[in-house]
Each structure stands twice: as structure tokens, then as C-alpha cells.
Simulated scan of single mutants.
Amino acid sequence: MKYIQRIRIEWMMILLAAVFLIQNLILDDRFGFVPVLSISLLAFFGLLVGFLGNTITVAVFSMMVMATGTYLLYYTPIIMPRLEKIYLIIVIPIFAVLGLITKNSVLFNRRSNTFQPRMRHYLTTLDETTGLYNKKEFEARFEKFKCAMNLYEKIGRGLIVSFYTVDYIEQLRYQNDQATDQLLQALAQELSDIRLPEEDQFYLGDGTFVVMSPIYHSGDSLTFIQELNRITKTQFSLFPFKNFERSQNTVIRFGEMAIEGSTELTAEQVISRVRRRSEADLTDEYIL
């Protein structure tokens, strides 16, 4: 049903007109003008019920009409062709269902047209592989958060930007591009599952995931986020890279940067600084 609702209203009108035309041609050839006119009026009544009602209304009304029509046409002495009796019983339910489908299609397309600009904007903020926010959205959200921190300096808000980069992502893609995408998708899903709802997750490309975590100067939010970052890195390292029958461990470079109070750093500067810190983390990783 949900796929039928997506049919454009123009095609639904063409379908209804075609059904009416085919019906009238068949009935006129078999029964004549008066039965055709009567059945067309009943079909129009069915369409009206479908347009004005909902699924429950159409279902209940159709059952009542079919029960009443069966009783009147088969248990009272009315003489008419058998096919005409059957069609008189089912014509209203058929066109009531068609009217309901048409109404739902109109409503669905109206909602789609209303939210289409928002949907288009939302899709431009997502990365195609991971489904997370992309670099452009990271820059926009960082600037928005920075402006808020500069505007309200006394509220004690801060920000932690955390980087998780899959090491040697180019070599992994060279070995198996599809397996690399599957690894990135699994990491993105894990990131969405274990991070906090108030955090934002991004994918900047080249195997780099970013988490933007708001914190307060008072309390243990900074310590908690740092502990959560270590847990995230450990969880990421547990996902192996599977290349056909072989698998290898995934090495994650990690870096974080805490921004407390007002700042003049741009998003590019933050990315550059955290990336350098992740390179230092990579050195520790291989030394250990």
C-alpha cells in the first residue's frame, strides 16, 4: 500500500478515468443505457466514500454494502442477469478502495512537496557511505557552537572534538573496496550506538570519524567524555577488516581536543590540530 501511495495524482486520475471508461464500454455492450447509468452513479458514490473516509470507514461501509446488496438481489424476487447482480454488489467497494488510494496518494505527495526542500538539505549533510554528517556539516555546527560559547561566556560550556581514524585506509581500499565500505558502515553504526544522544557524529572521509561532545566546566562531564573516548577507541579496534577469507586487525588513530570558553579557532584549524594529535597516538600505538 505504501508504494501505491507514492503514485502521482495525475496517474491516479488517469487510472480512475480508464477504469470508468472500460466499465462503461463493457456494461453498455451487455446491458444498455439504464444499467450503465445506474452503475456509474454507484461507482461515483463509492469514490465519494473513499475520498471522504479512512481505511476503517471504507472497510466497514464496504462490508455493509455487500451484505445488503447480496440480501436484496438474491433473497428478493429481482430478475436481472447474474453478472449484473454480482457487479452491483461489488461496484461501490471497488471504487471506494480506489478513491481511498487516490486520496492517500494526494496527501502523501502533498507532504512530500512540503518537506522536499528540508529533505534535500538534510541529504546534502550526510555522507553516502556511513550515513553520518559530512565535513561541511561539521564546519557549520562547529561555527554555530563556537558563536554560542563566545556569546555566553559565563555559562561554563565547552566542547570536546574527538577523532577516530582507520589507519592505512588507502591500502585497505586497494585490497577490497567493498570490505572497506562494510567496515566503515559497521564503525559508523557502533559510533551511533555507544555515544550519547546530545553528541554529534561525523565522517570526514579517508576513514576519519569525528565526535563533537558538549561539556560543562563544572562536574565530571570532561572526565566522563574522555573515558567514553577511550572505550570508543577500544570498541573500534575490535572490528576486523575482512578481506575474503582473511581478516586483519583494525588500527585506530585517536586524538581529542578540549575547547573551553570562547575561542577564535576555525573548524579547519581544529581538524588540523586534532589530526596531528592522532598522528602522535599512532606512534604510541606502534611503539607499544
Rank of each mutant, 00 (worst) to 15 (best):
I9P: 10
D177Q: 14
L21E: 01
T165R: 11
Y203T: 05
Y122A: 12
L47V: 06
F138Y: 05
V106C: 08
Y74G: 07
F45T: 12
Q182V: 06
F202Y: 14
A188Y: 02
Q201L: 07
V161C: 00
N104Y: 11
S278P: 06
V65Y: 10
F236K: 01
Q175W: 11
F236H: 03
V36W: 01
Q226S: 04
T232K: 01
E198I: 14
V251L: 12
T70N: 11
E285C: 14
A18M: 12
A43I: 01
C147R: 07
S218A: 12
K154Q: 11
A179C: 01
G99D: 09
M12R: 14
V97W: 05
F241I: 02
V49N: 04
G219S: 03
M212N: 00
L107T: 12
P81C: 05
S247F: 03
V161D: 01
R82V: 12
V166L: 00
H217W: 10
D177T: 09
P117I: 08
E128N: 15
L123R: 08
S218Q: 13
T208S: 09
I287M: 06
F239K: 00
G261A: 05
V106L: 15
I4P: 09
I160W: 03
V65L: 03
N176K: 00
E190G: 13
